[in-house]
Computed example of a mutant assay.
Amino acid sequence: MANANSIPKPRYLSLDVLRGATVAFMIIVNTPGSWSYVYAPLKHAPWHGFTVTDLVFPTFLFVVGNAMSFGMGKLKEQGNSAFLKKVFSRTLKIFLIGLFLNMFPFVKWVDDVLVMKDFTEIRIWGVLQRIAVCYCIASLLVYYFRSKTILLISAAMLLGYWGVMSWFGDYTLEGNAATKLDNFLMNAKNLYKGYGIPFDPEGVLSTIPAVVNVILGYFAGLFIQKKGNNKSTAFNLIGTGVILLLAASAWNLVFPINKPIWTSSYVLYTVGWDLILLAALILIIEVWHIKKWTYFFEVFGKNPLFIYALSGIFVKLMHTIYIGGENIHKLIFDGFFMNLLNPLNASLGFAISYMLFLWLIGLYMDKKKIYVKV
């Protein structure tokens, strides 16, 4: 999967904290004790609309771009062939890890018998696959084009995506162009089924606007490097964030904010909030020097992809391994949390406890100076 090496010199603490907080919250929203008992803010909006949970994935993409701004200079110094080798290698590794997580644990229970999964029916896309593709496209754009050209391409991506979505379909689950393209390109059995029909929220067409989340994260990083971690930088980021929120709200009137099809208004809305969050962290950590609380999130931020992958592996094993006729997940959730708390709090308590369990693994890795790089 990857090699364990010494972590590179930190870029800036605010980025590490934002990345770590994103991973921690991602684990909480992905692993409730029961999907039947989830507080509303910890659910995705069913279709159009926005909840705080809808900010998690785009923030991860934003952070990828932000971190890219600190490493791109070094990559450019290594030359074209070394750059391409690095980018394509990292893209392939992340994509394959995502595919591995979709297939894991390779077996399933059918009529009380453990049988091998049909690998021809495995979902191809997913969270890590989208991260891989967005990282690859954004890296190539950043490497080969000037800043003004990249921003023009980004605008064309958002406007072009709006045009395609409005011209070739509507904004419903069944009628949108992203659904139509995925079903044309791929077998329905290889697409996500969580919406009741073959529809992949990380499919081909909706990946195009998601690239812009990475690119704008990259430019935010460049701005911070140029202006410094100071009050003026933070207020500029907040101002830009507010402008993007207002623009997204206006665009929402004709192209609704929607995570599953990753609308262009959703891109501007999430980047707007990410800029405000990052600015707040810069003020608290870099300007006011309130740092004692940050280490908890740094632990997640130092091994983000590894801990995220581990979170998926462990929870699937808990659902697969049975003891005394019950799987481990049910034994823990029903036998412990449901006996102590009401259903909603039991489900949240399980999610938080699971996140803390993974934090302890991350803490051990940090103390042992083990950092997994992809």
Rank of each mutant, 00 (worst) to 15 (best):
A4L: 15
A4H: 12
I7L: 10
I7Q: 06
I7P: 14
D16K: 02
V23C: 11
I28H: 05
G33V: 02
S36A: 15
Y37I: 10
A40G: 15
L42T: 05
T51V: 01
T53I: 06
D54S: 09
L55F: 13
F57A: 01
M68L: 08
M72P: 03
K74Q: 14
Q78T: 12
S81F: 15
L92H: 00
I94S: 02
L96A: 11
L99M: 12
L99K: 02
L101W: 02
K108Y: 10
T120S: 13
I124S: 00
L140F: 11
F145D: 11
T149G: 11
T149Q: 09
L151S: 05
A155N: 10
A156I: 00
M165F: 07
Y171S: 11
T172N: 09
E174N: 14
A177N: 01
A178N: 05
T179F: 14
F184W: 06
Y195G: 01
Y195F: 15
F199V: 11
D200M: 00
D200H: 01
G203V: 03
S206W: 01
T207G: 14
A210P: 11
V211C: 11
V212D: 00
N213D: 09
N213E: 13
V214D: 03
G217S: 07
A220W: 07
Q225A: 06
G228I: 07
F235V: 12
T240H: 10
G241T: 11
G241S: 11
A247P: 13
W251R: 11
K259E: 08
I261R: 06
T263Q: 03
Y269E: 13
G272D: 05
W273T: 11
W273E: 10
L275Q: 09
I276Y: 02
L277I: 15
A280Y: 07
W288T: 13
K292S: 09
W293F: 10
Y295H: 05
P304M: 06
Y308G: 01
G312M: 07
K316D: 07
L317I: 14
H319K: 14
I323T: 13
G324H: 09
I328G: 04
I328R: 03
H329I: 04
K330M: 13
K330S: 15
I332G: 00
G335Q: 04
F336I: 14
L341H: 09
L341M: 15
N342I: 08
G362K: 02
M365I: 05
K369N: 15
V372G: 07
